[in-house]
Amino acid sequence: MQTLEALTRDARALANGEIVLSAPETEVARQMQICNACRYCEGFCAVFPAMTRRLEFGKADIHFLANLCHNCGACLHACQYAPPHEFAVNVPQAMAQVRGQTYADYAWPPALGRLYQRQGLTLSLALAAGLALFLVLGAVLQGGLDALWGANLGGNFYHLFPHNLLVGLFAPVFLFVVLALGLGVRRFWRDVTPATSGAPLSAPATAEATDAVLRLKYLDGGHGDGCHNEDDAYTLSRRRFHHLTFYGFLLCFAATSLATVYHYAFGWAAPYDLPSVPKLLGAVGGVMLMLGTAGLWHLNRTRHALHGDAQQKPMDLGFIALLFLVSSSGLALWLARGTPALALLLCLHLGAVMALFATLPYGKFAHGVFRTASLLRHAVEKRQPNPIGLSAD
């Protein structure tokens, strides 16, 4: 809900040149005005009920709606004003362009966000390769070329890189990711809160948003049959592959977190074997992550050209590639633990993990954080009186 005072303030700021909409933001505002007059897609997802609570669309409203959009494509295929109509309404593509802009606008530091947005796939793979090479050189300097193949590590990678050394390498990267993401979402939350009623979070709103996040509710097309990918056919494949990727990542993270507890609280040093809980979580999560990212890669490559922003494909594919590389190299490392390839696989896996964490605040991982924030604000806003007196349900 945007109050009349906020609308007046934004209108005055626009008139004074204090708020300047970018070309993608202007296009979203134009399309939302058309959609607000039509409302055929009101039941498809959270975007359209939120849209009906607004007569005008300021910068904060546009950022909020863009990150609320799940890019399912249902509204495009249902729209009578979609291209080649002269109105050229394409909400998924317009929202995707603004969403990509917000990743860079809210990134910290901003320069890294812009770099990853332009060269996501190349940067991701180059960073993983560079870090892996750095670790290879470190191993060679420590134990010579024999350390890379056939080294007598006894199946324990800590014999190559001690535990404290790995902590010293990864702890700063992890803390940087938390800081960068925290600063970015804090700015986003601060900007969109006044435009979404300004009311504080409540337990019911938090529960509703959590349910929407965990179930990926808005990837069902609004009717439960799924959204679209390469054609007009409904499919739940995007939802299923997103679930595999999301929960696979969470299981892998849980495995690492539990292993940390084992190490520091109980003195149980890695590596762990089945049926230990960290190994079970990591193995199941790794397989799920591989399947999910392989499916998302295929869907991304076959997606209808009008569904998204083509300029974001390198960023999307870079994130998918790193997730797949992390999961596949982790499983290979486990399966080859007693072979001469252990050291090389360890360097590859650690390089991929470090590259993934270093790029998390600047790509598709950030969209999950911003989308969660938008779903929270939507759940809060819909519980407030509608300021323009129109139904939003």
Rank of each mutant, 00 (worst) to 15 (best):
Q2D: 02
W108I: 03
L135W: 06
L333H: 08
G100S: 11
G338V: 10
F176I: 13
P83K: 06
V177T: 12
Y116L: 08
C252K: 01
L165S: 11
V28P: 00
L390W: 13
T260C: 09
P314T: 13
R190K: 11
D232I: 11
R39N: 06
L258D: 12
H223K: 06
V89G: 01
P361R: 09
D191Q: 05
L76R: 09
A310V: 10
P24N: 11
N90I: 08
I19H: 04
L350A: 12
G389K: 05
V369L: 12
V380M: 05
L348R: 04
D309M: 09
A341C: 10
L216G: 04
F57V: 08
E42N: 09
L375A: 02
C35P: 01
G318N: 06
A355Y: 06
G338K: 07
L166S: 07
L280W: 09
N36H: 12
K217C: 02
A15G: 14
V140E: 07
Q142T: 15
E42Q: 13
L348H: 03
C45T: 07
S391H: 06
Y81E: 05
T8G: 11
G295H: 02
L137I: 14
M1R: 03
N156I: 08
Y247A: 03
P361V: 11
T293V: 08
A283D: 12
A139P: 04
G226T: 10
A195F: 09
G144M: 11
F176S: 14
L115Q: 03
L296T: 02
H243G: 12
I62R: 00
T210M: 13
W334V: 10
I34R: 09
Q119N: 05
L376I: 08
G150R: 12
N386S: 15
Y103G: 01
H378C: 03
G221R: 05
L342M: 14
R114V: 12
R39I: 08
R54C: 00
S328T: 06
H63G: 01
P204G: 07
V369P: 00
F370K: 04
P109H: 08
M354A: 13
L281P: 04
G184W: 03
V136F: 03
L322W: 01
Y106E: 04
V91Y: 01
C227V: 14
T26P: 00
F87V: 11
G120R: 03
Y362G: 08
L123M: 06
K279A: 15
L345M: 12
L325E: 03
E86H: 11
G330V: 05
M315Y: 00
T8M: 12
P200W: 10
L251V: 05
L115M: 06
V213N: 06
Y116R: 07
L356I: 01
R190H: 14
L55I: 13
L133G: 03
Y40L: 12
V380A: 07
A269R: 13
R239D: 07
T235W: 04
T235Q: 07
Q97I: 12
L125D: 04
P172H: 09
C79R: 01
N386H: 12
R9M: 12
A254C: 15
S329C: 15
A270M: 14
E25R: 00
F188V: 03
S197F: 01
L251P: 05
M32T: 05
V277F: 11
N229H: 02
